[in-house]
Amino acid sequence: HNGKLCKLKGIAPLQLGKCNITGWLLGNPECDSLLPARSWSYIVETPNSENGACYPGDLIDYEELREQLSSVSSLERFEIFPKESSWPNHTFNGVTVSCSHRGKSSFYRNLLWLTKKGDSYPKLTNSYVNNKGKEVLVLWGVHHPSSSDEQQSLYSNGNAYVSVASSNYNRRFTPEIAARPKVRDQHGRMNYYWTLLEPGDTIIFEATGNLIAPWYAFALSRGFESGIITSNASMHECNTKCQTPQGAINSNLPFQNIHPVTIGECPKYVRSTKLRMVTGLRNIPSIQYRGLFGAIAGFIEGGWTGMIDGWYGYHHQNEQGSGYAADQKSTQNAINGITNKVNSVIEKMNTQFTAVGKEFNNLEKRMENLNKKVDDGFLDIWTYNAELLVLLENERTLDFHDLNVKNLYEKVKSQLKNNAKEIGNGCFEFYHKCDNECMESVRNGTYDYPKYSEESKLNREKIDGVKLESMGVYQILAIYSTVASSLVLLVSLGAISFWMCSNGSLQCRICI
């Protein structure tokens, strides 16, 4: 991952900044910058967002509201009850120091605090018919004063009620008058409520006091790749198909172990950190130390980045220098085999997901714990399936590479015959000098055995068991695999060879 928040398929997220979902939807004055928000790819909250409900109280069923919003990608904020005409018999300019803005008392931008007009609070009834052709999110509140005197001074009615009804919602609220500790300079409380109004449905408000009335509502448009994440990451000019709280993932790998919460087309989250597919040879310690064997393909974004291909070729060293050249036929066979294998694994496992966190309130801790156990169970199954699949494929890959290298080895052996000696570690020792032209003939299969047989015969008789390297004779190393990324691999195959001279070296080696 890149540690950044990015656009998702070209669409920017909605960053709530210092506000949370509650503050944004109710219209906390400190969240005025969010009022123009219309569309987004996903919503970003920060872990310690401080601006929620400015007048103390709870947004009821907040967790369910977050779940609903996680599939919303755009909205239209509109005046559901026009301020100047909807409440002619009531005062609608209630403000509070708890919702101060720029040093002055204020109130929510989407709600109206209705109080008595003169000395009376006549029963009010108002309704709205949803003609938007889509779901409408309606929010309101109920004020709970701290004393009967406060109730009387604001609403005149000691036994007030609030009723809200639609086809799918029907509740009646009565204020709970009680002494409470002071929070944000208030002994009173406000509880906030919401409902989704279906197209064509009607919502009716009736009250004799204590109503925090809707002013603006939201017509919602769903987008199934949307979601809500909690993150401290910063926004950058970048684009992605998959976003996590820790950063964007741009990967076609089937798995990731970065974060379980994802938005967009994302690899499946697994616990494993070692889900690797081999593309090189079986481990040979001396070669492995030099980083030549054991190439791997990573299938977990965050564990290993991208696929690494092994390729086969020849390396030689003689009086004229040293050089490398790919054996294109065996390399292409290996590439085709690995590509098919990788595609097979991805096809089997690479279903892209959006995974969002589930919200539970403080009273639902047991449910949250149960949900976590269920999620953990599914996660263990996914991890096991992934590891088992790759384990089985790896064994076949190792066998496949062994065969490829063996074929190259036999190709060289059949040409050199007794003009060189096998020394048991995949290397041959020449009994004759071999210049670049000679080396090329070994690589392309045109090695002239009779041409060098007499010199080889004489050297075999002279050496008589002495280690060949100390006599200045020449080696050919018969097994060799270097490691390159897919891009470098293609470039390498396009070149005939490249040279690395070893000044004054008397050794001649050709490596497979």
Rank of each mutant, 00 (worst) to 15 (best):
S231M: 06
S231C: 00
S231F: 07
S234M: 04
M235R: 11
H236V: 12
C242D: 04
Q243Y: 06
Q243A: 04
T244W: 04
N252S: 11
F255N: 01
N257A: 05
I258C: 13
H259Q: 02
G264E: 10
Y269D: 02
Y269L: 02
V270N: 10
S272L: 14
K274C: 04
L281V: 15
I284R: 13
L292C: 01
L292Y: 03
A295H: 04
A295C: 06
G302K: 09
G306S: 11
I308G: 02
G313N: 10
G313C: 04
H315Y: 15
H316R: 03
E319M: 10
E319V: 00
Q320T: 05
G321D: 08
S322C: 08
S330V: 01
Q332F: 03
N336Y: 05
N343D: 08
T351C: 07
F353P: 00
K358V: 11
F360V: 03
N361W: 06
K365H: 09
R366K: 12
R366P: 09
L370H: 06
K372F: 03
D376M: 09
G377Q: 14
A386V: 13
E387N: 11
L391T: 12
L391P: 07
L392A: 09
E393T: 10
N394M: 15
E395D: 10
T397F: 06
H401S: 01
D402G: 08
Q415M: 09
L416H: 04
G424C: 12
N425A: 07
G426N: 12
C434N: 07
C438E: 09
D448V: 10
Y449A: 14
P450Q: 01
K451I: 09
E454Q: 06
K457H: 11
L458F: 07
E461I: 15
D464H: 12
G472I: 08
Y474Q: 02
Q475H: 04
Q475A: 14
I479C: 08
Y480I: 04
S486R: 00
V488P: 08
V488H: 04
G494E: 13
W499R: 04
W499Y: 12
C501S: 10
C501E: 03
L506Q: 15
I510A: 15
C511A: 10
